[in-house]
């Protein structure tokens, strides 16, 4: 049942992504990406990941604000056409070849509904699930993984986020440019 609902949402996301990439108005393409992101959030909710669903919702709203800031004040928002014809055809052929070559790889994965931890007795996920409450005291196992078992990952994430925001501010600041001229 969950598989069918997720398939419907994935078809919706594929259509939304195609509209976002093919429409000429930039504002409507940004809003289509927003629709894709919210469908993704519902998919996360369906596969038992409420933390990711909430985070995806917040991040989606923030990224919509950022993207609309990038597009709305510029009058030249419609650029028609793709790259030149031969290059476009070559790229599409390569993407199609990638699709044909990549699809057999998905057959070697375990089928949908059987995670890798159900086949390995000593997987860390089992350890987290059975001992997470006793060892960390957190009722939410995802929170115990990101804040206790793998806290160094979260430290690195905070570092990357800080660095990227610092880079964006350094690119967008205006006062040092005035001094030069």
């Amino acid at each position: 049942m969950v598989e069918i609902i997720i398939s419907v949402f994935l078809v919706f996301m594929v259509i939304g992504a195609l509209i976002a990439l093919e429409t000429t108005d930039l504002l409507s393409s940004v809003i289509s990406i927003g629709a894709v992101g919210f469908a993704l959030s519902i998919c996360f909710l369906l596969v038992g990941a409420p933390d990711i669903a909430i985070t995806q919702m917040v991040v989606e709203v923030l990224s919509l604000v950022i993207l609309i800031r990038a597009t709305i004040r510029h009058d030249l928002t419609t650029i028609d056409g793709d790259r030149d014809f031969f290059g476009l055809m070559a790229t599409l052929a390569l993407i199609f070849a990638l699709l044909l070559l990549g699809l057999p790889a998905f057959l070697s994965l375990p089928p949908f509904g059987t995670p890798a931890m159900s086949q390995m007795m000593e997987s860390p996920a089992r350890h987290y699930l059975s001992g997470g409450l006793r060892e960390t005291g957190a009722a939410n196992i995802v929170a115990s993984v990101i804040l206790d078992y793998r806290a160094y990952d979260t430290l690195g994430e905070a570092t990357v986020l800080f660095t990227s925001i610092l880079g964006a501010l350094a690119i967008l600041r205006v006062y040092s440019r005035k001094k030069k001229s």
Binding site: A49, V59, Y128, V145, I146, D153
Partner: peptide, 15 residues
């Protein structure tokens, strides 16, 4: 369900 991919994807979304 498996909590490890969820924790890593949570990191990935914020990045």
């Amino acid at each position: 369900v498996d909590p490890v991919p969820q924790a890593l994807v949570l990191t990935s979304i914020v990045i």
